[in-house]
Amino acid sequence: MTLALDRTRALLDTPPPDVIPGQLDLTRSTVTTQPLGLNDLLAATPVPPGTEAYPAQITVFCDDCGTTATHDYVVHTGMTRDERLTVARQHLTDSQNWDCGAAGDLCPDCKGDEPGMCPACDTAVIERCVACGRCRCDTHENCIRPTP
């Protein structure tokens, strides 16, 4: 019994090996916490008259691989389902490197970042108007198409 206890003590006294890249490092705590302050957050959120702000957990799925992104958002009772989803898509596009546009919801691994892509309508450079070079965001009423 003493031999087993000695081995256990030796293992506990031995420093852990270096962390392998890609492996979770349990020797350091990198988690930061902040108090939620939900009431303060809800009170500070601008909402239209006659509506109330409330927290909502919204999940967006990548249309290619099925990856999900779930976050908490502050929405209000006057919003439709599509408007609440737009809040989540805007957040993912702005801060999580997703591409949520006309081509669908694409995670950072699946999106195609071609140079010159319009983030609003997902128009690539080769798909732009031949006459003016602008994307689909513009109406092109005054464009004169070249004849072939």
Rank of each mutant, 00 (worst) to 15 (best):
Leu36Ile: 07
Gly78Cys: 08
Ala120Tyr: 12
Cys107Ser: 08
Pro15His: 04
Leu38Tyr: 05
Thr2Leu: 15
Gly101Asn: 07
His140Ser: 03
Arg136Val: 13
Pro108Glu: 01
Ile126Arg: 13
Arg28Lys: 10
Asp40Phe: 12
Glu114Trp: 02
Ser95Leu: 12
Ala10Ser: 05
Pro108Trp: 05
Arg145Ile: 15
Thr139Arg: 11
Pro119Ala: 06
Leu5Ser: 04
Cys110Ile: 10
Ala4Ser: 11
Ile144Asp: 11
Leu85Pro: 00
Tyr54Glu: 03
Asp13Gln: 13
Thr70Glu: 13
Ala102His: 12
Asp109Thr: 15
Ala124Trp: 06
Ala56Val: 04
Thr68Cys: 06
Glu127His: 11
Pro55Asn: 03
Asp94Tyr: 11
Ile58His: 02
Ser29Arg: 11
Pro16Thr: 15
Asp13Glu: 12
Val125Tyr: 09
Pro21Leu: 13
Gly112Cys: 06
Asp25Gln: 07
Thr32His: 09
Asp94Gln: 11
Thr86Cys: 12
Val74His: 14
Thr32Gln: 12
Leu26Cys: 15
Asp99Tyr: 04
Val130Ser: 13
Asp99Val: 05
Thr67Asn: 10
Gly104Val: 01
Asn39Glu: 14
Gln23Phe: 10
Ala69Trp: 01
Val19Tyr: 00
Ala44Phe: 03
Phe61Lys: 05
Asp63Ser: 01
Arg134Lys: 15
Gly66Lys: 06
Pro146Asp: 02
His71Pro: 00
Pro49Ile: 13
Thr27Gln: 09
Arg7Ala: 10
Val87Tyr: 04
Arg89Gly: 08
Leu92Gly: 01
Asp25His: 02
Asp13Thr: 11
Lys111Gly: 00
Asp122Leu: 10
Thr33Ser: 14
Thr123Ile: 10
Pro49Thr: 14
Asp72Ala: 11
Thr59Pro: 02
Leu36Thr: 11
Cys135Met: 07
Cys132Trp: 04
Thr147Phe: 08
Val87Gln: 02
Asp99Gly: 03
Val74Asn: 03
Asp113Ile: 04
Gly112His: 03
His91Asp: 12
Gln23Asn: 15
Leu85Lys: 03
Gly22His: 09
Val125His: 10
Ile20Gly: 15
Arg134Phe: 03
Arg145His: 15
Leu41Gly: 11
Pro108Ala: 02
Asp72Asn: 04
Thr139Asp: 11
Pro16Gln: 14
Pro46Cys: 03
Pro146Val: 12
Met1Val: 07
Ile58Tyr: 02
Arg136Cys: 14
Arg7His: 11
Trp98Lys: 00
Ile58Trp: 00
Pro17Asn: 08
Lys111Asp: 06
Leu3Lys: 14
Cys121Tyr: 03
Ala120Ser: 15
Pro17His: 14
Leu26Lys: 10
Lys111Pro: 09
Thr45Glu: 08
Glu127Ser: 05
Ala131Gln: 08
Arg7Lys: 02
Ala124Phe: 06
Gly112Asn: 05
Asp18Glu: 05
Ala53His: 06
Cys65Arg: 04
Asp25Phe: 12
Lys111His: 07
Gly104Glu: 00
Tyr54Ile: 07
Arg84Cys: 05
Asp13Lys: 07
Val87Asp: 01
Asp94Ser: 09
Arg128Val: 06
Asp64Glu: 08
Cys132Leu: 10
Pro48Leu: 04
Leu11Gln: 07
Gln57Arg: 13
Arg9Asn: 14
Ala131Cys: 04
Leu12Asp: 13
Asp82Phe: 07
Tyr73Ile: 14
Arg145Phe: 08
Gly78Gln: 02
Lys111Trp: 09
Asp18Phe: 13
Ser29Asp: 15
Thr51Lys: 07
Lys111Ile: 01
Arg134Tyr: 15
Thr2Ala: 15
